[in-house]
Nucleic acid binder design. Sequence first.
DNA 1: CGGCTCGGAGTATAAACAAC
DNA 2: TTGTTTATACTCCGAGCCGC
Length: 507
Amino acid sequence: MTSSCSQPLTHTPSVQRKKSNKPHVRTACSNCKKAHLACDTARPCKRCISVGKSDSCYDIQHKKRGRPKLRPPFATNSLTSLPSLTAPSAVPAYYYPYPASSAPSTVHGMPHSLTSASAMAMPAPIRLTKPTGPALPVLAPFLPPSPPSPCFEMTKSQRVGSTSTKGPTMLTIFLTLELLCGRASDECMELLGYHPRDLAYQPLEQFLMNPSDLRQVQQKLMASYRHHVSASPAITSPASTVSSADHFHTAPTTLLEIANGSSTFKTRLAFKPAKDRHGDASGAVMDAHLYFGGGLGADLCSLTNLDRLYIVCTLTLSKTSTPHPQPQRPVGVPLIPPDQPARSLTVPSMANYFAFPEADPTLLLPNNTSNTVPIHLASSLSTLPGAMISEPNSQEDLIHMDQVSANFPYFTPTTSASSSPQTSAPSIEILSTTPLTNPSSASSSPPSTTHESPSPLPNYPSNHSFTPIMMSLPYGAPATSFNVHQDTEHLLAWLEDSFPQQTAAVK
DNA sequence: CGGCTCGGAGTATAAACAAC
DNA sequence: TTGTTTATACTCCGAGCCGC
Ligand SMILES: [Zn+2]
Ligand SMILES: [Zn+2]
Protein backbone atom coordinates (compact mmCIF):
# COMPACT_ATOMS: atom_id res chain seq x y z
CA MET A 1 0.00 0.00 0.00
CA THR A 2 1.03 3.51 0.14
CA SER A 3 3.81 3.76 2.55
CA SER A 4 1.79 4.23 5.65
CA CYS A 5 3.94 7.06 6.54
CA SER A 6 3.99 7.71 10.17
CA GLN A 7 3.50 5.46 13.06
CA PRO A 8 1.85 2.15 13.36
CA LEU A 9 -1.71 2.82 14.05
CA THR A 10 -2.50 2.11 17.61
CA HIS A 11 -5.27 -0.28 17.13
CA THR A 12 -6.93 -2.00 19.98
CA PRO A 13 -7.18 -5.66 19.29
CA SER A 14 -9.68 -6.14 22.01
CA VAL A 15 -12.23 -4.04 20.28
CA GLN A 16 -14.97 -6.37 19.28
CA ARG A 17 -16.79 -5.18 16.27
CA LYS A 18 -20.47 -5.48 16.61
CA LYS A 19 -22.38 -7.18 13.94
CA SER A 20 -23.96 -4.75 11.63
CA ASN A 21 -27.55 -5.40 10.90
CA LYS A 22 -27.24 -3.94 7.50
CA PRO A 23 -26.44 -6.49 4.86
CA HIS A 24 -23.46 -5.84 2.66
CA VAL A 25 -23.90 -5.13 -0.96
CA ARG A 26 -22.61 -7.76 -3.26
CA THR A 27 -20.41 -5.35 -5.09
CA ALA A 28 -19.23 -2.04 -3.83
CA CYS A 29 -18.59 0.61 -6.38
CA SER A 30 -15.09 1.57 -7.33
CA ASN A 31 -14.96 4.60 -5.11
CA CYS A 32 -16.45 2.97 -2.07
CA LYS A 33 -14.21 0.02 -2.45
CA LYS A 34 -11.19 2.19 -2.58
CA ALA A 35 -12.35 4.16 0.40
CA HIS A 36 -13.38 1.07 2.35
CA LEU A 37 -16.74 2.61 2.86
CA ALA A 38 -20.25 1.38 2.67
CA CYS A 39 -21.87 1.37 -0.68
CA ASP A 40 -25.31 0.60 -2.00
CA THR A 41 -26.71 -1.04 -5.05
CA ALA A 42 -27.59 2.10 -6.91
CA ARG A 43 -25.25 3.43 -9.52
CA PRO A 44 -24.11 6.00 -8.92
CA CYS A 45 -24.28 5.05 -5.33
CA LYS A 46 -25.42 7.33 -2.59
CA ARG A 47 -21.96 8.05 -1.31
CA CYS A 48 -20.59 8.88 -4.73
CA ILE A 49 -23.45 11.23 -5.35
CA SER A 50 -22.85 12.92 -2.06
CA VAL A 51 -19.21 13.46 -2.73
CA GLY A 52 -19.70 14.31 -6.37
CA LYS A 53 -18.03 11.30 -7.83
CA SER A 54 -20.95 9.96 -9.76
CA ASP A 55 -18.95 9.86 -12.92
CA SER A 56 -16.51 7.38 -11.55
CA CYS A 57 -19.01 5.22 -9.74
CA TYR A 58 -19.11 1.85 -11.38
CA ASP A 59 -18.97 -1.76 -10.46
CA ILE A 60 -15.63 -3.34 -10.47
CA GLN A 61 -15.01 -6.83 -11.57
CA HIS A 62 -14.46 -9.30 -8.81
CA LYS A 63 -11.72 -11.78 -8.79
CA LYS A 64 -12.44 -15.34 -8.13
CA ARG A 65 -12.62 -16.04 -4.46
CA GLY A 66 -11.86 -19.13 -2.58
CA ARG A 67 -9.09 -21.51 -2.23
CA PRO A 68 -7.00 -21.76 -5.32
CA LYS A 69 -6.92 -24.98 -7.18
CA LEU A 70 -4.24 -27.31 -6.17
CA ARG A 71 -1.96 -28.24 -9.01
CA PRO A 72 0.09 -31.33 -8.61
CA PRO A 73 3.62 -30.84 -9.81
CA PHE A 74 3.45 -33.46 -12.49
CA ALA A 75 -0.07 -33.63 -13.61
CA THR A 76 -0.48 -36.85 -15.46
CA ASN A 77 -2.94 -35.45 -17.77
CA SER A 78 -3.50 -36.60 -21.25
CA LEU A 79 -3.42 -33.05 -22.31
CA THR A 80 0.17 -32.77 -21.62
CA SER A 81 1.78 -36.15 -21.31
CA LEU A 82 4.94 -34.99 -19.78
CA PRO A 83 7.82 -36.91 -21.17
CA SER A 84 10.21 -38.59 -18.84
CA LEU A 85 9.89 -36.24 -16.03
CA THR A 86 10.94 -38.87 -13.63
CA ALA A 87 14.55 -38.33 -14.41
CA PRO A 88 15.45 -35.46 -12.24
CA SER A 89 19.01 -35.42 -13.35
CA ALA A 90 18.04 -34.91 -16.90
CA VAL A 91 15.53 -32.31 -16.04
CA PRO A 92 16.79 -30.60 -13.02
CA ALA A 93 14.15 -28.06 -12.39
CA TYR A 94 10.80 -28.60 -13.85
CA TYR A 95 9.04 -26.99 -11.07
CA TYR A 96 9.80 -24.78 -8.22
CA PRO A 97 7.61 -25.35 -5.27
CA TYR A 98 7.24 -22.33 -3.22
CA PRO A 99 5.36 -22.36 -0.04
CA ALA A 100 3.77 -19.08 0.62
CA SER A 101 6.09 -18.46 3.49
CA SER A 102 9.13 -18.83 1.33
CA ALA A 103 7.94 -16.72 -1.49
CA PRO A 104 10.41 -13.99 -2.06
CA SER A 105 9.65 -10.91 -0.15
CA THR A 106 10.34 -8.83 -3.12
CA VAL A 107 9.43 -9.42 -6.64
CA HIS A 108 11.29 -7.43 -9.17
CA GLY A 109 12.65 -5.39 -6.40
CA MET A 110 9.39 -4.00 -5.36
CA PRO A 111 8.18 -4.10 -1.87
CA HIS A 112 6.29 -7.18 -1.11
CA SER A 113 3.35 -5.19 -0.09
CA LEU A 114 3.09 -3.93 -3.58
CA THR A 115 3.79 -6.90 -5.69
CA SER A 116 2.11 -9.50 -3.65
CA ALA A 117 -1.02 -7.55 -3.87
CA SER A 118 -3.91 -9.83 -3.87
CA ALA A 119 -5.27 -7.97 -6.77
CA MET A 120 -2.52 -9.45 -8.82
CA ALA A 121 -3.06 -12.96 -7.73
CA MET A 122 -1.72 -15.63 -9.91
CA PRO A 123 -2.99 -19.03 -9.24
CA ALA A 124 -0.26 -21.51 -9.36
CA PRO A 125 1.43 -22.46 -6.16
CA ILE A 126 4.08 -24.28 -8.06
CA ARG A 127 6.24 -23.57 -10.95
CA LEU A 128 6.04 -26.14 -13.62
CA THR A 129 7.60 -25.80 -16.94
CA LYS A 130 7.90 -28.37 -19.52
CA PRO A 131 8.63 -28.67 -23.15
CA THR A 132 5.76 -29.48 -25.37
CA GLY A 133 7.92 -31.70 -27.48
CA PRO A 134 9.99 -34.60 -26.41
CA ALA A 135 13.40 -33.23 -27.26
CA LEU A 136 13.15 -29.80 -25.91
CA PRO A 137 15.25 -29.32 -22.88
CA VAL A 138 14.06 -26.83 -20.44
CA LEU A 139 16.08 -23.84 -19.78
CA ALA A 140 15.55 -24.08 -16.15
CA PRO A 141 18.03 -21.48 -14.99
CA PHE A 142 16.37 -19.03 -17.23
CA LEU A 143 13.23 -19.24 -15.23
CA PRO A 144 12.77 -17.41 -12.04
CA PRO A 145 12.29 -19.58 -9.03
CA SER A 146 9.59 -17.33 -7.95
CA PRO A 147 5.90 -17.11 -8.19
CA PRO A 148 4.57 -15.76 -11.36
CA SER A 149 4.63 -12.08 -11.24
CA PRO A 150 1.99 -9.83 -12.55
CA CYS A 151 4.65 -7.33 -13.24
CA PHE A 152 5.88 -6.87 -16.68
CA GLU A 153 7.83 -4.28 -18.49
CA MET A 154 7.48 -3.19 -22.02
CA THR A 155 10.65 -1.25 -22.16
CA LYS A 156 13.79 -2.80 -21.07
CA SER A 157 17.26 -1.56 -21.06
CA GLN A 158 19.60 -4.04 -22.45
CA ARG A 159 22.89 -4.45 -20.81
CA VAL A 160 25.51 -5.85 -23.05
CA GLY A 161 28.81 -5.71 -21.39
CA SER A 162 28.88 -2.27 -20.01
CA THR A 163 26.71 -0.60 -22.53
CA SER A 164 23.17 0.15 -21.75
CA THR A 165 20.74 1.09 -24.39
CA LYS A 166 17.09 1.37 -24.57
CA GLY A 167 14.37 2.96 -26.49
CA PRO A 168 11.85 5.32 -25.11
CA THR A 169 10.05 3.99 -22.16
CA MET A 170 6.78 2.56 -23.22
CA LEU A 171 3.87 1.81 -21.04
CA THR A 172 1.41 -0.78 -22.16
CA ILE A 173 -2.05 -1.15 -20.78
CA PHE A 174 -4.44 -3.91 -21.66
CA LEU A 175 -8.00 -2.75 -21.44
CA THR A 176 -11.43 -4.16 -21.68
CA LEU A 177 -13.68 -2.84 -24.37
CA GLU A 178 -15.11 -0.55 -21.78
CA LEU A 179 -11.63 0.81 -21.34
CA LEU A 180 -11.22 -0.55 -17.89
CA CYS A 181 -7.61 -1.24 -17.18
CA GLY A 182 -6.95 -4.91 -17.04
CA ARG A 183 -3.25 -4.84 -16.68
CA ALA A 184 -0.55 -2.27 -16.95
CA SER A 185 3.12 -2.68 -17.41
CA ASP A 186 5.59 -1.60 -14.82
CA GLU A 187 6.48 1.53 -16.69
CA CYS A 188 3.30 2.87 -15.24
CA MET A 189 5.18 3.85 -12.17
CA GLU A 190 7.86 5.66 -14.03
CA LEU A 191 5.74 7.36 -16.60
CA LEU A 192 2.61 8.13 -14.71
CA GLY A 193 3.52 7.76 -11.10
CA TYR A 194 0.91 5.12 -10.56
CA HIS A 195 1.61 1.63 -9.54
CA PRO A 196 0.20 -0.78 -12.10
CA ARG A 197 -2.09 -2.01 -9.45
CA ASP A 198 -3.53 1.44 -9.08
CA LEU A 199 -4.89 1.09 -12.55
CA ALA A 200 -6.31 -2.34 -12.16
CA TYR A 201 -10.03 -2.42 -12.71
CA GLN A 202 -10.14 1.31 -13.11
CA PRO A 203 -11.41 3.10 -16.15
CA LEU A 204 -8.49 4.56 -17.93
CA GLU A 205 -10.25 7.83 -18.39
CA GLN A 206 -10.22 8.28 -14.68
CA PHE A 207 -6.54 9.05 -14.96
CA LEU A 208 -6.90 11.52 -17.76
CA MET A 209 -7.14 15.24 -17.68
CA ASN A 210 -9.54 15.15 -20.55
CA PRO A 211 -11.43 11.90 -20.78
CA SER A 212 -13.08 12.91 -23.98
CA ASP A 213 -9.80 12.35 -25.78
CA LEU A 214 -10.04 8.75 -24.92
CA ARG A 215 -13.72 8.46 -25.58
CA GLN A 216 -13.12 9.77 -29.04
CA VAL A 217 -10.76 6.98 -29.75
CA GLN A 218 -13.06 4.50 -28.17
CA GLN A 219 -15.81 5.63 -30.45
CA LYS A 220 -13.58 5.17 -33.42
CA LEU A 221 -12.57 1.77 -32.27
CA MET A 222 -16.16 0.81 -31.79
CA ALA A 223 -17.05 2.25 -35.13
CA SER A 224 -14.44 0.09 -36.73
CA TYR A 225 -15.79 -2.82 -34.81
CA ARG A 226 -19.26 -2.15 -36.09
CA HIS A 227 -17.90 -1.83 -39.53
CA HIS A 228 -16.54 -5.31 -39.30
CA VAL A 229 -19.57 -6.91 -37.85
CA SER A 230 -22.04 -5.07 -39.99
CA ALA A 231 -21.92 -7.91 -42.45
CA SER A 232 -23.09 -10.26 -39.81
CA PRO A 233 -26.43 -9.21 -38.45
CA ALA A 234 -26.22 -11.86 -35.80
CA ILE A 235 -23.59 -9.87 -34.06
CA THR A 236 -24.89 -6.74 -32.57
CA SER A 237 -22.80 -5.07 -30.00
CA PRO A 238 -19.47 -6.03 -28.65
CA ALA A 239 -19.95 -8.39 -25.77
CA SER A 240 -16.54 -9.23 -24.64
CA THR A 241 -16.00 -11.60 -21.82
CA VAL A 242 -12.44 -10.61 -21.45
CA SER A 243 -11.57 -9.73 -17.92
CA SER A 244 -8.58 -8.59 -16.11
CA ALA A 245 -7.99 -12.17 -15.19
CA ASP A 246 -7.49 -12.98 -18.83
CA HIS A 247 -4.93 -10.27 -18.99
CA PHE A 248 -3.12 -11.68 -16.05
CA HIS A 249 -3.27 -15.21 -17.24
CA THR A 250 -1.87 -14.49 -20.62
CA ALA A 251 1.60 -13.51 -21.55
CA PRO A 252 1.95 -9.82 -22.26
CA THR A 253 3.65 -10.61 -25.48
CA THR A 254 0.66 -12.56 -26.54
CA LEU A 255 -1.71 -9.89 -25.45
CA LEU A 256 0.13 -7.41 -27.57
CA GLU A 257 -0.96 -9.12 -30.71
CA ILE A 258 -3.28 -7.06 -32.73
CA ALA A 259 -6.55 -8.58 -33.69
CA ASN A 260 -6.85 -9.48 -37.27
CA GLY A 261 -8.70 -6.67 -38.93
CA SER A 262 -8.08 -4.13 -36.25
CA SER A 263 -7.13 -0.62 -36.97
CA THR A 264 -4.85 1.38 -34.81
CA PHE A 265 -5.63 4.81 -33.54
CA LYS A 266 -3.26 7.32 -32.28
CA THR A 267 -4.03 10.13 -29.97
CA ARG A 268 -2.46 12.16 -27.28
CA LEU A 269 -3.54 11.71 -23.74
CA ALA A 270 -2.77 13.99 -20.86
CA PHE A 271 -2.67 12.13 -17.60
CA LYS A 272 -3.50 13.50 -14.25
CA PRO A 273 -0.60 13.69 -11.90
CA ALA A 274 -0.64 10.89 -9.44
CA LYS A 275 -1.70 12.01 -6.04
CA ASP A 276 0.22 11.04 -3.02
CA ARG A 277 3.33 10.50 -4.99
CA HIS A 278 6.56 12.16 -4.38
CA GLY A 279 6.75 15.29 -6.33
CA ASP A 280 8.35 14.26 -9.59
CA ALA A 281 5.24 12.79 -11.01
CA SER A 282 3.59 15.58 -12.80
CA GLY A 283 0.86 14.88 -15.22
CA ALA A 284 2.37 13.34 -18.28
CA VAL A 285 1.37 13.93 -21.85
CA MET A 286 1.55 10.68 -23.69
CA ASP A 287 1.33 9.53 -27.23
CA ALA A 288 -1.15 6.73 -27.24
CA HIS A 289 -1.80 3.99 -29.72
CA LEU A 290 -4.88 1.92 -29.30
CA TYR A 291 -5.92 -1.16 -31.15
CA PHE A 292 -7.96 -4.26 -30.66
CA GLY A 293 -5.96 -7.04 -29.17
CA GLY A 294 -6.14 -10.43 -30.72
CA GLY A 295 -4.05 -12.24 -28.20
CA LEU A 296 -7.03 -14.04 -26.79
CA GLY A 297 -8.21 -15.27 -30.11
CA ALA A 298 -10.48 -12.58 -31.43
CA ASP A 299 -10.49 -12.01 -35.13
CA LEU A 300 -12.36 -9.13 -36.66
CA CYS A 301 -12.09 -10.45 -40.15
CA SER A 302 -13.42 -13.90 -39.64
CA LEU A 303 -15.59 -12.57 -36.83
CA THR A 304 -14.50 -15.34 -34.58
CA ASN A 305 -13.99 -15.17 -30.87
CA LEU A 306 -15.25 -11.66 -30.72
CA ASP A 307 -16.00 -12.20 -27.12
CA ARG A 308 -12.27 -12.38 -26.61
CA LEU A 309 -11.68 -8.91 -27.84
CA TYR A 310 -9.90 -6.35 -25.77
CA ILE A 311 -7.98 -3.17 -26.32
CA VAL A 312 -4.30 -2.58 -26.22
CA CYS A 313 -3.04 0.86 -25.39
CA THR A 314 0.61 1.70 -25.69
CA LEU A 315 1.88 4.94 -24.31
CA THR A 316 5.08 6.83 -24.70
CA LEU A 317 5.91 10.25 -23.55
CA SER A 318 4.88 12.71 -26.13
CA LYS A 319 7.82 14.06 -28.01
CA THR A 320 6.26 17.42 -28.24
CA SER A 321 5.70 17.73 -24.60
CA THR A 322 8.42 19.09 -22.46
CA PRO A 323 11.57 17.11 -22.87
CA HIS A 324 11.64 14.45 -20.32
CA PRO A 325 14.98 13.23 -19.20
CA GLN A 326 15.37 9.54 -19.57
CA PRO A 327 15.98 7.99 -16.26
CA GLN A 328 19.36 6.51 -15.90
CA ARG A 329 18.45 3.55 -13.92
CA PRO A 330 17.47 0.44 -15.72
CA VAL A 331 13.77 0.58 -15.96
CA GLY A 332 12.26 -0.99 -12.99
CA VAL A 333 14.37 -3.61 -11.45
CA PRO A 334 16.03 -6.74 -12.58
CA LEU A 335 13.50 -9.05 -14.02
CA ILE A 336 16.07 -11.71 -14.01
CA PRO A 337 17.06 -12.95 -10.66
CA PRO A 338 20.66 -12.17 -10.04
CA ASP A 339 21.68 -15.74 -9.62
CA GLN A 340 20.65 -16.65 -13.06
CA PRO A 341 23.05 -16.92 -15.89
CA ALA A 342 23.39 -14.00 -18.13
CA ARG A 343 22.03 -15.69 -21.13
CA SER A 344 19.51 -13.06 -21.74
CA LEU A 345 22.13 -10.43 -21.39
CA THR A 346 24.29 -11.65 -24.15
CA VAL A 347 22.12 -10.54 -26.94
CA PRO A 348 23.20 -7.69 -29.08
CA SER A 349 22.05 -4.24 -28.44
CA MET A 350 18.40 -3.72 -28.61
CA ALA A 351 18.67 -0.06 -29.21
CA ASN A 352 15.53 1.33 -30.63
CA TYR A 353 13.78 -1.88 -30.56
CA PHE A 354 11.04 -0.12 -28.83
CA ALA A 355 11.68 3.06 -30.61
CA PHE A 356 8.68 4.87 -31.71
CA PRO A 357 9.17 6.18 -35.17
CA GLU A 358 6.36 6.83 -37.52
CA ALA A 359 5.93 3.23 -38.19
CA ASP A 360 2.64 1.55 -37.93
CA PRO A 361 2.23 -0.76 -35.05
CA THR A 362 -0.41 -2.72 -36.73
CA LEU A 363 1.54 -4.59 -39.25
CA LEU A 364 2.76 -8.07 -39.51
CA LEU A 365 1.75 -10.86 -37.38
CA PRO A 366 2.55 -14.46 -37.23
CA ASN A 367 0.76 -16.20 -39.94
CA ASN A 368 -0.06 -19.36 -38.21
CA THR A 369 -3.32 -21.04 -37.96
CA SER A 370 -2.52 -24.61 -37.32
CA ASN A 371 -3.12 -26.03 -33.95
CA THR A 372 0.40 -26.70 -33.07
CA VAL A 373 2.64 -24.20 -34.54
CA PRO A 374 5.98 -22.78 -33.92
CA ILE A 375 5.34 -19.18 -33.26
CA HIS A 376 8.03 -16.67 -33.13
CA LEU A 377 7.16 -14.53 -30.30
CA ALA A 378 8.99 -11.69 -31.85
CA SER A 379 6.42 -11.67 -34.49
CA SER A 380 3.84 -10.82 -32.02
CA LEU A 381 6.09 -8.25 -30.59
CA SER A 382 6.34 -6.87 -34.02
CA THR A 383 2.99 -5.40 -33.49
CA LEU A 384 4.75 -2.94 -31.34
CA PRO A 385 5.20 0.44 -32.76
CA GLY A 386 8.47 0.73 -34.44
CA ALA A 387 9.37 -2.85 -34.28
CA MET A 388 11.56 -3.80 -37.11
CA ILE A 389 10.53 -6.89 -38.83
CA SER A 390 12.32 -8.96 -41.28
CA GLU A 391 11.87 -12.57 -42.03
CA PRO A 392 10.17 -14.44 -39.30
CA ASN A 393 13.12 -16.65 -38.78
CA SER A 394 15.71 -14.06 -39.14
CA GLN A 395 18.46 -13.55 -36.74
CA GLU A 396 16.94 -10.29 -35.86
CA ASP A 397 13.75 -11.83 -34.77
CA LEU A 398 15.50 -14.39 -32.79
CA ILE A 399 17.33 -11.71 -31.01
CA HIS A 400 14.11 -9.96 -30.39
CA MET A 401 12.74 -13.16 -29.12
CA ASP A 402 15.42 -13.31 -26.60
CA GLN A 403 14.76 -9.84 -25.60
CA VAL A 404 11.18 -10.66 -25.13
CA SER A 405 12.09 -13.46 -22.88
CA ALA A 406 14.37 -11.27 -20.95
CA ASN A 407 11.54 -8.91 -20.42
CA PHE A 408 9.07 -11.50 -19.41
CA PRO A 409 10.77 -14.03 -17.30
CA TYR A 410 7.68 -15.50 -16.00
CA PHE A 411 6.33 -16.06 -19.39
CA THR A 412 9.55 -17.34 -20.67
CA PRO A 413 8.80 -20.03 -23.09
CA THR A 414 10.31 -23.37 -22.84
CA THR A 415 13.27 -23.13 -25.01
CA SER A 416 15.92 -25.11 -26.56
CA ALA A 417 19.15 -24.05 -25.11
CA SER A 418 21.31 -26.46 -26.98
CA SER A 419 19.73 -27.08 -30.30
CA SER A 420 19.04 -24.08 -32.31
CA PRO A 421 18.91 -25.26 -35.81
CA GLN A 422 19.36 -22.14 -37.78
CA THR A 423 21.54 -19.91 -35.85
CA SER A 424 23.92 -19.75 -33.04
CA ALA A 425 22.06 -16.90 -31.61
CA PRO A 426 19.85 -17.77 -28.73
CA SER A 427 16.95 -19.27 -30.48
CA ILE A 428 13.71 -19.52 -28.74
CA GLU A 429 11.11 -21.32 -30.58
CA ILE A 430 7.85 -21.75 -28.96
CA LEU A 431 5.95 -24.82 -29.61
CA SER A 432 2.55 -23.92 -28.56
CA THR A 433 -0.34 -26.20 -28.54
CA THR A 434 -3.42 -24.33 -29.27
CA PRO A 435 -5.18 -24.77 -26.04
CA LEU A 436 -8.67 -24.93 -27.25
CA THR A 437 -8.09 -27.71 -29.63
CA ASN A 438 -7.43 -30.35 -27.18
CA PRO A 439 -5.77 -33.09 -29.08
CA SER A 440 -6.66 -35.85 -26.73
CA SER A 441 -10.30 -35.28 -26.22
CA ALA A 442 -12.02 -36.52 -29.26
CA SER A 443 -15.41 -36.21 -27.73
CA SER A 444 -15.31 -32.85 -26.15
CA SER A 445 -14.34 -30.40 -28.71
CA PRO A 446 -14.04 -27.10 -27.02
CA PRO A 447 -15.89 -24.18 -28.34
CA SER A 448 -15.46 -22.48 -31.56
CA THR A 449 -11.84 -21.88 -31.92
CA THR A 450 -10.71 -24.36 -34.41
CA HIS A 451 -10.60 -21.95 -37.13
CA GLU A 452 -8.98 -23.66 -39.92
CA SER A 453 -8.92 -21.14 -42.66
CA PRO A 454 -7.09 -17.95 -42.31
CA SER A 455 -8.69 -14.80 -43.35
CA PRO A 456 -8.20 -14.20 -47.02
CA LEU A 457 -7.26 -10.61 -46.66
CA PRO A 458 -4.30 -9.28 -48.50
CA ASN A 459 -1.35 -7.88 -46.77
CA TYR A 460 -1.46 -4.20 -46.52
CA PRO A 461 1.51 -2.01 -47.09
CA SER A 462 3.33 -0.91 -44.07
CA ASN A 463 3.98 2.67 -44.86
CA HIS A 464 1.24 4.79 -43.62
CA SER A 465 1.38 7.32 -40.95
CA PHE A 466 -0.75 8.79 -38.28
CA THR A 467 -2.46 12.01 -37.80
CA PRO A 468 -3.73 13.01 -34.42
CA ILE A 469 -6.51 10.56 -34.59
CA MET A 470 -6.21 8.61 -37.68
CA MET A 471 -7.30 5.25 -38.61
CA SER A 472 -4.58 3.07 -39.86
CA LEU A 473 -5.19 0.62 -42.58
CA PRO A 474 -6.70 -2.50 -41.28
CA TYR A 475 -4.27 -5.04 -40.35
CA GLY A 476 -4.67 -7.75 -42.87
CA ALA A 477 -2.51 -10.68 -42.15
CA PRO A 478 -4.24 -13.68 -40.82
CA ALA A 479 -3.91 -13.91 -37.16
CA THR A 480 -3.28 -16.87 -35.07
CA SER A 481 -6.44 -18.38 -33.88
CA PHE A 482 -5.02 -18.77 -30.53
CA ASN A 483 -1.87 -17.89 -28.96
CA VAL A 484 1.23 -18.80 -27.29
CA HIS A 485 1.06 -20.32 -23.93
CA GLN A 486 4.62 -20.78 -23.23
CA ASP A 487 4.22 -22.47 -20.03
CA THR A 488 2.31 -25.64 -19.70
CA GLU A 489 1.46 -25.08 -16.15
CA HIS A 490 0.04 -21.82 -17.15
CA LEU A 491 -1.78 -23.45 -19.93
CA LEU A 492 -3.22 -26.06 -17.68
CA ALA A 493 -4.39 -23.46 -15.28
CA TRP A 494 -5.94 -21.57 -18.06
CA LEU A 495 -7.62 -24.61 -19.44
CA GLU A 496 -9.01 -25.66 -16.16
CA ASP A 497 -10.27 -22.26 -15.39
CA SER A 498 -11.78 -21.74 -18.75
CA PHE A 499 -13.19 -25.15 -19.45
CA PRO A 500 -13.68 -26.97 -16.22
CA GLN A 501 -16.08 -29.46 -17.72
CA GLN A 502 -13.90 -30.40 -20.60
CA THR A 503 -10.75 -30.69 -18.62
CA ALA A 504 -12.49 -32.67 -15.95
CA ALA A 505 -13.77 -35.01 -18.59
CA VAL A 506 -10.31 -35.46 -19.95
CA LYS A 507 -9.00 -36.27 -16.56
C1' DC B 1 -15.84 18.75 11.69
C1' DG B 2 -15.77 16.45 7.38
C1' DG B 3 -13.12 13.91 4.32
C1' DC B 4 -9.53 10.71 3.58
C1' DT B 5 -6.75 6.59 4.45
C1' DC B 6 -6.28 2.12 5.95
C1' DG B 7 -6.09 -1.95 9.44
C1' DG B 8 -8.67 -5.51 10.10
C1' DA B 9 -13.24 -7.87 11.64
C1' DG B 10 -16.70 -10.23 9.73
C1' DT B 11 -18.37 -12.53 5.77
C1' DA B 12 -18.71 -14.81 1.12
C1' DT B 13 -16.94 -18.10 -1.89
C1' DA B 14 -14.47 -22.00 -3.70
C1' DA B 15 -11.38 -25.89 -3.45
C1' DA B 16 -9.41 -29.51 -0.66
C1' DC B 17 -10.14 -32.77 2.52
C1' DA B 18 -12.57 -35.92 5.80
C1' DA B 19 -16.33 -38.54 7.13
C1' DC B 20 -20.08 -41.21 6.07
C1' DT C 1 -22.46 -37.35 -1.23
C1' DT C 2 -22.18 -34.33 2.49
C1' DG C 3 -19.90 -31.76 6.00
C1' DT C 4 -15.65 -29.52 7.47
C1' DT C 5 -11.43 -27.21 6.80
C1' DT C 6 -8.57 -24.19 4.41
C1' DA C 7 -7.52 -20.36 1.54
C1' DT C 8 -8.65 -16.34 -0.70
C1' DA C 9 -11.34 -12.14 -1.72
C1' DC C 10 -14.90 -8.91 -0.42
C1' DT C 11 -17.41 -5.27 2.25
C1' DC C 12 -17.15 -1.75 5.31
C1' DC C 13 -16.55 -0.37 10.57
C1' DG C 14 -13.95 2.42 13.05
C1' DA C 15 -9.71 4.82 14.30
C1' DG C 16 -6.09 8.08 13.15
C1' DC C 17 -4.76 11.93 10.43
C1' DC C 18 -5.19 16.29 8.11
C1' DG C 19 -6.94 20.52 6.24
C1' DC C 20 -10.33 23.95 6.77
ZN1 LIG D 1 -20.40 3.23 -3.64
ZN1 LIG E 1 -20.25 4.89 -5.99
